[in-house]
Structures are given as C-alpha cells and as structure tokens.
Design a protein around this nucleic acid. Structure first.
Lengths: 324, 324
DNA sequence: CTGAAAGCGCTAACAC
DNA sequence: GTGTTAGCGCTTTCAG
C-alpha cells in the first residue's frame, strides 16, 4: 500500500536502519490507517528472541506473590522486557508443560518457583539452554541461580525468639517435606534452634501440613488432640498461622495467654487479625526485582556462574507472643 | 537423524496423517533421545492459531482471583487450551500493551478484567477480531460478553439486610467511580436499598476509596472524623472491610456493638478475622469456568451475539452485624 | 503412505 | 537508502 518493499517497512518498524523521511511517513500513515501491528510471533521466530520473560508460580493466594510479581514486572519493564505468568499448581507435570510453552514462544528467560528442580525438569531446563532463575527457595541444584530469604536462619531466629521468651514447649506446623522453602528449610531452622537450647523434638508437636488457612486449621486440630499442649507454636506460613489461631480461638484457647504463635511471610492480613500476628517479614518485591535484574544480566550474556542471593528478613514482633 | 523427511516428522508429532509404524518409531526414538520439543511459535505461525488463551487481570491480591484463574485454567485445559496471565495494574496503557502482546503471540482469545472498556481499548479489541470476554464486571459495551455477579442486586440485598436489622445510619466505603464492579454498581445497590427504605444519602458517610486493606483503614478514618457516626457500614470489598474493622478496633470501637460491618467477595480471610465478617459470597471459580467455556465456544465459531452471564451470590451472615 | 516444495510474517545479510 | 533474497521451524498442499 505504501509502495515500498517489505524491508523498508521492517526498517521503519524497528528503526533498524535509516529510511528517507517521505518513505517513512508513507509507511507510518498506512500503518496508522490500517491499525497494523507487527506479528510478534513472526518477529520472534525470525530474530530468535522475544523480549519476553516467563514467570512460573504455583499459585497466587497471598499478597506476597502479588508483590513478587510486581517486583519482577517493574525491572523487566525498565529493561524492555515483557512478562507473562502461568500458574502451575506446583505439579511437575504442569511445570514441564508450561516450561515448554514458554520455550515455544521463545521466552528469553524464565523465573520460577518450583520444588521439583531435579530429574526431568532440571534436564529440560539445561537442555533448553534458556536462562532460568529460582525464586523463593534455595536451589537444590547449583546449576540454577536463586533469590530467596534465608529460610533456615530466619526460622532459627523466630524460634530462638520464642525460646528467649521462656518457651520450651514449642510446636511447629511445617509444610510438607519436598516443599523446600516452607517445608524443609524452615523446619531445619526450628530444629537448629531447639537443638541449640537443648530441647528435644517432640513428635506430637511437629505436624506436616499444606500451606493454606484450611490446612492450618486442620493441623492445629491434630496438635490440640495430642497428649499435651505446647505453649508456643511456630508456623511455616502466615496462612497456616492464621488458620491455627482460628482453630485455637474456636476452641476456647486464648492467644497469646494459652499459646503464643509466630508466622512467616508477613502477608498484609497478619497485621489485621487479632491478636496481631508476630511474623518473619521480608520484601517479596525485592526478591522479584533481584531475580529479574540478574536473569536479564544472564540473558544478555553477563556472568554465567550461578549465584544465590538472599534478601534480608526480620522478625516483626506484634501481639501473638507472650513471655513466660 | 531418523532418516525421514520433515513432513513425516510433522505427521507423527501431530498425528495428522497415518505413518508406518517403523518410521513412526524411529522418529519417536530420536525425539525421546534428543528431548526434542516442537517449537510452538513456529507451529502457531504456520497454523495461524495458538491454542492459547490470554488472561489479563489488574492484580492478584486476594484469594478470589486465584480461584478465578483456576476456574479458567481448569476448563481451558479440558478443551486443549493453554493460558497465560498478565497483570495490568488496571491502567489503560498496560492493558493496551498486554493486549497487543497477546495479539502478537496469536492468542486465540482473551479473558480480561478491565474498567477501561471504551475508546481505545474497545477499538483495539474490535479491530483485532480476537474473541474476548469480560470477567468481574458488567460490560459497558454490549459488544463484549461478560461473566460476573450481579453486583447491583447483591449490594442491594446486603444493605437491605442491614436495614432489616434495624439500621438506618448506614455508611458505605465504595471503590472509585470508574471502578465498575466494586465502585459504581455496588454503590448503586446501596443507593437503591436506602432509597427504597426512604433513607436519604448522607454525604459524610459515603467515601470513595481504593480497594485494599490500607485504603479501608484510611477511608474508615475519614468516616470516624465526620460529624456523627453510623451504626452500620457496607464495604465494597472484604479487604476494605477488614481495613475498616482494623481502624475501628484500633480506635476503641467495638464490632458489631458500636458499628456493624458487611463486606463483599467472601475471601478466605473474611472468616478468619474476629469478629467474623458477614459478606456477600459468590464462586469466583464459577466465573472463571463460565468465561473460559463461552470464550472457547466463540473461538470455535459458536454463537456470536454477546451475552452476559451472572453467577449466583448470597449473603453469608456471620458475626459482624448486630440488630438494633 | 511419503517426500518435495510452497508459504506463515518477519528479519538480516547482500547487492545495487 | 532501498530492494532482493534467504531463511527462522513448522504445516500443508501436491505429486508420486
């Protein structure tokens, strides 16, 4: 329509080479008038890059993840990348599926939160050659960089705080083993703190659970039904803690008078419930930003050796713990 | 590697035409051993379709949206579609941007929650010819089908309930006008209920606010500082309600003794806070499933005339309202 | 049933 | 500066 060659059109679209003003104008006019948009997919195919970063998360049920995503989006945008998100539900099958989907649309890099970084998934990632970065959990495999809070230390500090407040009968509702961050590592911190204080682990007071509010309710019920009650409870996530508090209060126990509770994550609701929940806080958006920044560095051929970054954390003490 | 032509490989990948067993096996073996995956993007380019549904949401800060997404994913998967999500922050600029991004990767259809369905955006959508469906809010424009709860009626019922409990001094924290669902429509329901009961609107008791917990705190403060206090409060979202309750309790007011509160959405936290929040509930996953189902029908050339679907709602009465 | 060849919409040398 | 041409990785006629 503009009476020019395809290449010229391509050049004005990409500003890749100089084009005479009148030709450029003719092209632009036609584009405007036909509302033409270049087909990204074909561009990507031809260029073998997409300026697209894929994000794979198991779910988005708490505010922390929204912050994480915003952190990622923020720096991605600055560097000219778009992001696209998919929810995997945490299953290996879905993770493989979505990884291939991202691969298919030529994603330049992928940020993922997964507990299945081994076997098939890790093979696929390495084979694909797509730069990846793990968020939220410490990497099993050294081949993939990661950004996360120091879950072990943070949990250790939270439980140590409880011990300092005079508690020795401390239960923990942990996430399932296999759930790296909130399961294994936060439990490890709990174990270390108790060990250091010479407190033996009490089987009845360690219950494995999902990470949702409902799971917390269920898990708390199990602890209540055990032979004796703890005076304090450390929960792997705030949602678990909120569920547990719900169960306790429904059953006539007072917080923190009867049992003290500490959570992990610092979701916004932790400050809204009563009593306000003491919890381990950290900046999820910082995780997102750091991840995006370093992923992009790798995409652009920066450092290759995988590193692991920790963002800072602190215990926000509120009203759910008493000293005895 | 398998000693066959490209076409044959394509045929075994797609099962599009019969291939002799031994050839098929040779191809499959090589695919397995090289971990070969077809390049989706090139497939799409050649086929001019992607089996991809784009989802555009402003944010994912509450459990309702997680449910919504899962609803969408669930039925999409059944029909062989993949989904990809992008967070727009609710700004027109981002919505245009991501829409074009989805268009670029040849998304077959798009599910979106937007309050900017007019002017540029609607033009772009119509021009692109991509089937779209709106979730969460009633469509301005008749040209785009939508799935949502009947916000006006639901809000009307919630406020009418308050009136039945003997309240006449009823405040509302509404979302901003322009925010179709939680702003305009839920306010309209409030207005109708009061009008029907012959209660005049009190300017001081209607405050416009964002939809987050923090916004709720801020808005409640404004109401507290007005000349006189209401006995009841209707909030456009549960998060607002939770923030408002926080502010009230921080300032020594009791719920429901001093003021009754009703929320909207039925997020999981509404049952966790104390007192438990009475709120309008509905199934977000049903919205997601209905949207996906009908979008796919449109993609496949089913009915063209846009329709609007409502999912059912009900008022879950809990402990945050007293009768006077 | 199988291979050769054209083409999806675009970019990137390569000539002029 | 601009047009021509060869792909990007795949699907789909079209012959055989």
């Amino acid at each position: 329509m503009a009476g020019v060659s395809i290449s010229t059109v391509s050049r004005v679209i990409n500003n890749s080479k100089p084009v005479q003003d009148d030709l450029r104008k003719r092209v632009l006019d036609v584009m405007e008038q036909t509302k033409f948009r270049p087909n990204t997919i074909a561009q990507n195919l031809a260029k073998n890059e997409s300026n697209l970063i894929g994000v794979m998360l198991p779910e988005v049920k708490n505010t922390v993840l929204d912050e994480l995503i915003h952190g990622i989006n923020h720096v991605s945008r600055i560097y000219g990348y778009n992001t696209m998100l998919s929810l995997t539900g945490g299953t290996l099958e879905n993770e493989l599926h979505y990884f291939n989907l991202f691969r298919g649309i030529q994603a330049d890099g992928i940020i993922l939160a997964s507990d299945n970084l081994k076997g098939e998934l890790i093979e696929l990632i390495e084979l694909s050659g797509i730069p990846c970065i793990l968020v939220g959990r410490d990497a099993h495999s050294a081949s993939i960089p990661s950004v996360h809070v120091d879950n072990i230390t943070a949990a250790y500090e939270a439980v140590t705080y409880l011990i300092q407040q005079g508690h020795r009968r401390i239960a923990m509702i942990r996430a399932r083993s296999g759930d790296v961050a909130s399961g294994d590592h936060r439990f490890e911190g709990y174990r270390m703190a108790l060990a250091e204080a010479g407190i033996p682990l009490a089987r009845d007071w360690i219950v494995e659970s999902g990470i949702t509010v409902e799971d917390g309710i269920e898990a708390m019920r199990k602890i209540r039904e055990s032979r004796s009650m703890p005076t304090a409870l450390f929960c792997a996530t705030d949602r678990i803690a909120i569920g547990a508090m719900h169960d306790l209060m429904e059953n006539g126990l007072r917080i923190p008078d009867d049992v003290s509770v500490v959570g992990f994550d610092g979701i916004d609701m932790s400050a809204m419930i009563r009593p306000k929940l003491s919890t381990v806080k950290y900046s999820a958006s910082e995780i997102g930003m750091t991840a995006a920044r370093n992923l992009i560095k790798r995409i652009r051929g920066g450092e290759v050796s995988p590193r692991h970054w920790c963002v800072s954390h602190y215990l926000e003490t509120r009203d759910s713990v008493r000293s005895i």
